[in-house]
Structures are given as C-alpha cells and as structure tokens.
Amino acid sequence: MLEARLEQAQLLKKVVDAIKDLVQDCNFDCNDSGIALQAMDNSHVALVSMMLKAESFNPFRCDRNIAIGLNLVSLTKVLRAAQNEDILTLKAEDAPDSLNLTFESSDKDRISEYDLKLMDIDQEHLGIPDTDYSATISMPSAEFKRICTDLMAMSESVTIEAGKDGIKFACNGDIGNGSITLRTVQDVENKENNIEIALTEPVSLTFSLKYLVNFCKAQNLSKTVKLHISNEVPLLVEYAMEGGSYLRFYLAPKIGD
C-alpha cells in the first residue's frame, strides 16, 4: 500500500495547479522511490514529467508499484479543501479504486478526510533520452514568467536564441516586434536573482508562447527555473523542489518556415 505524508499540503496543491490546465487524466505512478507522473497534453506538443521523491515526504511508504489514475479537475476540488499549511497524507491500497486524502491543521484541531474515486488510465510512456543540452539557462522563475507574458501580448511564438552575448527572447507579431536579452547576473546576496548561462554551442529555436505561459503556472514551486535548449530537440523547462523532487515540462519546437 501507499502511505505518503507531506508536511505542507501546498506542495501538492501547487504541483497540481501548475499542470491541471495542460493534462487532465493521468496516473500517479508510485513506487519506493516516490510518486511520478508523465503525461502529454491533448495536442501532443508538450510533455509533463513530475517526480515527487520519497525524500519530500515524511514518512513515505510504498512497497510495490501502484498506479493511481486521477482526474486532475476532481483532485483539485478535493485539494481546495486543504489549507496550504495543513499536513497532507495520501493513502491507497495495492490495487486501488480510491485515493484517501487527509488534511490535518498544524495545530491538530481539525482533520478532514476525503476519498477520491480513481480511474483506469491506460497511458503511453515515452522514453526521454539523456541529452547534453547546448545551452542551459538558470534564471528567476518570476523573470521567465514576465518575459513569456509580455511577449505573448505581441505574438503567438517566441524565438529563443542563446549565444555568447547572452540569451535573447524575440517575437514578431502583427503590431510589431519585440525582444528581451538577458546577460549573466551574479547576485552574491540573493542567489535566486542569478542568471547563469552555460553554453557549449549557439542555439536558436522557436516555441509556442501559449505553452510557455502555461508552464509558468509552476512559478510558485521554485524561485528559479532552468531552461535546457538544443537545436532540433524539445525545450526542457525545469522547476526544482526540495528533496530532489521536480516538475519538468518538455515543449516540441516549431519546425521549418
């Protein structure tokens, strides 16, 4: 069986919030290393890969592989009943038809308990190859969100160009064009303000802003975001969490002209 206790419900609330507009029905694949999710959006342009490591829970018990088939709209309805600071416990049997969730207020004067019906979801899993990306950019997640939102007001796509002079986000729209260029920032006092650019070769790729803006819903999970870019492969947008857990989004580039 699965028993997983989170010190703060907000971790799961934020993760589900960040992906529920991209994917609807998906399996939480549980084993002794944690809870994983992999799902594509309906149009097969983006892929969500979530890993909540056992280390992010206390305690975490799961002695065999358990697939928890969830509708994220339904899960959201239940999670809305949890306060951010509540202790959240997930429980499921080995071949579950429901997921048990309890929310315990931190001063323990209230315990809420819910059982959510599960779905049988036959999901395709894609093998994501290990990639040495040509450019890796680490930046404040709020900055990335602002860039995507600002450019989306002008155009439906953005060209991300990483070179020795920095990283440039450029768009071309009906009303005109715009670009934002970022250079390396080293803020010793506040490392989360840093912009780090690791480049092995220049890259330039075009992506749909609609998806990028959607990924930015994960902003609350982490103060920093990492973009991994190589020519002609999907962009990886990564939000890292405590305990080695992560939420990753892959986005297929636009192709041809």
């Binding site: 594509m40 149009s43 097969h44 342009v45 983006a46 892929l47 395709e124 899993h125 894609l126 093998g127 994501i128 190859p129 796509s157 075009t206 749909s208 492969v233 999907p234 892959y250 986005l251 297929a252 580039p253 636009k254 192709i255 041809g256 002209d257």
Partner: peptide, 14 residues
C-alpha cells in the same frame, strides 16, 4: 509560418 512539432516525434514510446 513555422509548423508545430509533435513531442512524439522526438521521444520514443517505451
């Protein structure tokens, strides 16, 4: 304009 790539053409089915 550019066409939108499909994620399944980059990642293989397991």
């Amino acid at each position: 304009g550019a066409g939108q790539g499909n994620i399944m053409s980059f990642f293989s089915k397991k």
